[in-house]
């Protein structure tokens, strides 16, 4: 499935606010290092994400660029 949260890792400063507000605990600070020397946040459980957008709302660096929700399946 497509990623529900698009993170621009170069903008991330590893403050951890998105991880602290995520109601489903599907975000974490990764082991990678960006060009500024920070460990960017990553979405490690795309299936568990409910696209609530709390991470986007709290992100102080606009690193969370997009939040998407899958279209409901028509029966």
């Amino acid at each position: 499935m497509e990623k529900k949260v698009i993170i621009n890792e170069e903008r991330c400063k590893s403050c951890g606010l998105c991880v602290s507000v995520c109601p489903k605990h599907v975000l974490r600070i990764s082991d990678r290092i960006n060009s500024k020397g920070y460990h960017p946040a990553e979405l490690f459980d795309n299936e568990g994400c409910i696209s609530c957008g709390f991470c986007y709302i709290i992100c102080p660096d606009m690193a969370i660029q997009e939040v998407r929700r899958p279209e409901p399946v028509k029966k």
């Binding site: 497509e2 529900k4 696209s51 957008g53 986007y56 709302i57 606009m62 969370i64 660029q65 997009e66 939040v67 998407r68 929700r69 899958p70 279209e71």
Partner: peptide
Amino acid sequence: MKLIYKKP
């Protein structure tokens, strides 16, 4: 996928 939020 429906866009919920996007960086302005």
